[in-house]
Design a protein around this nucleic acid. Structure first.
Lengths: 338, 338
DNA sequence: AAAAGTTACGAAAACGGTTTCGTGTTAACA
DNA sequence: TGTTAACACGAAACCGTTTTCGTAACTTTT
């Protein structure tokens, strides 16, 4: 076992000062070629690598960016991370991912932890609990300390910072428009309660699209589930109580469940009933029939968020302007629609 | 904007020394109650939190553990991370996730980066490129420096360290046994090339199970794909060239694809042809029909890996013993088998 | 040959903590 | 009253870097 070698070690071996070693390794003009060669050769030989922690402490920059997401076992967030990683790595940044697990407390803990020097800036999406509590003090504290923050997808107007979201309203609008144009009129929406910002916007888009096509809004065609968990009973009741010829779901799981249910009831997809789901993930692609989906472009979102963040981090002009990027969703047509 | 407060700031305000502040905040016996109260109250008021970087530098421990996985958009790895997070967080550790993206180079870069002081230990699963190149020098360097490492799932005998894997051979064995017991005899295997350690083991289990039941091995019933990408043509040829009444797939995607294909050919699942897939992920659960799967217990794997790692990290006795935990897979029966 | 300018390097402070050790003050003891 | 012990705190080293500034030894200028 050979422990890591430090500047001090090199300095001792080569009988020069630590400063000389440091400068030589940075190819400073101050040091003679002879000395630089000796030092660089020695360093290479012993595989010297500067200690990140020390460098961070000294420079007060970590080259780390912290990402806090509600759930890691979730395709959308996972693609966002991929986008963040892609951009950040290219810029020489590391990505530290922490998971709040949809819990307010874990979100607070993780933020405080990372905020104490571990990272140069945050990218985050709110946990559902946080959105329900509507308590953003932990986030305010961080921004007040001057730590750059960009929020994505699940955002809040209560915090003043850069944001990147997709136009959820427009996504729902597109979907409903698609239904209507293919002759559907009894269009249902399956969503979660409105505590999630995205659910709210999607519902808005759904309503707006109906209005735009002079279809009266029928509240009983909206199924609001209290959580992301599927409740079999609620689904069954919903579909047996009324006629439905198209369904928009705010996530894949709801859509897959509903499709399975109506198929068991003998209905044909998409002829009898069409489906569109939010988030173009694996399930949509591989469902039987495959599910027409509204793509959220998670990877792009991640890249954009990373770009915004790194910009803020690197230009320390703490301009108080904040920018919101709105990505346009696109409809990926598959077998579940006409 | 109020920047972070430091020990020095508190010391100045309260006209005591930095050491006194440090000790007071740690509730040291050395400091009088009076002083401690003053200092602690002041610290709370100004929301003092020690700078992690400074503490890490001083203590030479970061309380971070680095995780390197090949792919984050992958349900299995994602559940492993959840398990790691769960255990590590409970123990006061942070988890830094880096993604190698199945690339050897990115794996090397990430390891070197994290190894330079950012973490106390590694948990990793090899990238496919690394397994193909069979080059583990970057990993050896890390372990030689005395940084604890535990590998999971995609491991190699070339590195001496703690490991946690599931018994892939046994998993395949169980699946094939299940097929045979339900009367199937023309049992196919769809796998990737053998560069992935897991594929090798699963193939071994498949063969062993056939032998155990006196079914002759028919090489043409094994479809080996060069990568994880699905090649439609290869699938079609495979299923049109021969009779098959059961299929074991080394991942969900292969299974879903194959199921779709045979369903389009008019075959009934599971009566005409049964399916079992490795990795019990979302796709298996929501497929039509739902897919019988071999559960890999990713979350458990993560917890176990974290436990092993933290143990090594905290007992600095660099005992040269290394331990391999073998988790037993279980068969989750669903609609795709009889 | 004295003054000025280069060159090549080292000393030391700084980043923000932790910890060991020393010491002035007071209280307890003989 | 002199000695000792306990108490409460501060000085300083240290973790591994970076960076400013000072300076000895040469070289160039006039």
């Amino acid at each position: 076992m050979k422990p890591k070698i430090t500047l001090k070690d090199i300095a001792r071996e080569l009988e020069v000062s630590i400063s000389t070693v440091s400068k030589a390794l940075k190819n400073s003009e101050e040091i003679s070629m002879d000395t630089k060669d000796r030092i660089q050769a020695f360093a290479k030989l012993y595989n010297y690598k500067p200690n990140n922690i020390a460098v961070s402490l000294k420079n007060r920059r970590t080259k780390n960016i912290g990402v806090i997401i509600p759930d890691i076992v979730h395709h959308f967030f996972t693609t966002v991370i991929r986008g963040i990683e892609k951009y950040a790595n290219a810029k020489g940044y590391n990505v530290l991912v922490c998971v709040s697990n949809e819990s307010f407390d874990r979100e607070v803990i993780n933020m405080e932890l990372l905020a104490n020097g571990s990272i140069d800036g945050f990218i985050m999406s709110l946990s559902s609990e946080t959105q329900q509590k509507n308590d953003y003090n932990h986030i305010k504290e961080v921004t007040e300390q001057g730590i750059p923050l960009v929020m994505f997808d699940r955002v809040t107007p209560h915090i003043h910072c850069d944001k990147v979201v997709i136009d959820d309203e427009q996504g729902a609008f597109l979907a409903v428009k698609k239904f209507i144009e293919s002759g559907k009129t009894k269009i249902a929406l399956i969503t979660t309660d409105n505590y999630l910002s995205v659910s709210k916007d999607r519902t808005k888009g759904y309503i707006k699209a109906l209005e735009a096509h002079q279809i009266p809004l029928n509240e009983s065609l909206i199924l609001r589930l209290p959580s992301m968990d599927v409740e079999e009973k609620a689904f069954e009741d919903f579909f047996s109580d009324q006629e439905v010829d198209a369904v928009l779901c705010v996530n894949e799981i709801f859509a897959i469940h509903a499709m399975r249910l109506v198929q068991l009831q003998g209905k044909k997809i998409p002829q009898d009933i069409s489906f569109i789901g939010f988030t173009d993930g694996l399930l949509s692609k591989y469902a039987m029939p495959s599910l027409t989906a509204i793509a959220q472009h998670g990877e792009l979102m991640g890249e954009e968020a990373a770009k915004l963040l790194i910009e803020k981090v690197e230009t320390q002009e703490d301009e108080m302007t904040s920018h919101t990027t709105i990505l346009q969703p696109t409809l990926i047509e598959r077998e579940s629609t006409l």
